[in-house]
Design a protein around this nucleic acid. Sequence first.
DNA 1: AGGCAGGTGGCCA
DNA 2: TGGCCACCTGCC
Length: 281
Amino acid sequence: MLREPLSPAVLAEVVDGGQTFRWNRLPDGVWQGVWAGCVARLKPAGSDGLLWSAPQELAGIVADGLPAYFGTMLRFDRLVDDLPWRSDAHLARCLKAFPGLRLLRQPLEETLLCFLCSATKQIVQIKQMVELLAQRHGREIVPGIHRLPTWAELATVSEEALRSCQLGFRARYVSQTAQILAEKAGWLDQLEYLPYREAKERLRELPGVGEKVADCVLLFGAGRFEAFPVDVWITKTMELRYELDGWAPQQIAHFGRMHFGACAGLAQQYLFAWERAQGRG
DNA sequence: AGGCAGGTGGCCA
DNA sequence: TGGCCACCTGCC
């Protein structure tokens, strides 16, 4: 499916490195993931690239949806080559360490939901929350596997019921956002057609969506690769690798977009992968 | 066993 | 603007 083979480590980084929260490791290097109405299994296959499979009744929609989800129409090799690795030795070694690392193109609705849940939580816990949301409030796709609830569905769920999905104070964000989106048909979809800056401003009108969450939603759910989400980890990374000690998050985000350019978000993913491999994060 | 966590929003100088 | 703190609660 992919033009270049993905090593098991890079595949793990793509599906379980904080971009998405609905992939789980199965035996024998297989990953199973759920997005929109799709369920798929993935397995690295050496030089043959990446093998996929899906439940028979979903084979058609997964065959259609998987390439878009993995962004196979984008030439990540070219995007990576356009990053400033020639003048940035740290970036260069990150790129070399994770060949084939890519950004997923996830459904916008789901990306917003997941990152609204992400505040001060680690990946494992975010995965638990969204799994509960899916099991309790999302439509069953195949026996035992549910998709995430749509915002229309979330608008019918009480804040208390959301809290019982381990959301804690994030339940209020999700609940209020659901009410707002319920009154604004097409509001989310319009973001796709707005310039980055305006799309981000619009997103930030939603409760629980600040700078960081807005950038994650735009990067992972709307293909805005110039977005450069700044969380505590990227702050530490930038301090350590680029000597930005004492910089405010907004300054770091600005530096990131200036230094890394049009695909700053792609660079950010590599920086993350590197630090995680060092045992941080 | 208890602190801490991949943010945000509100309040204060 | 810039800093500080409450917000929930399940993991390590």
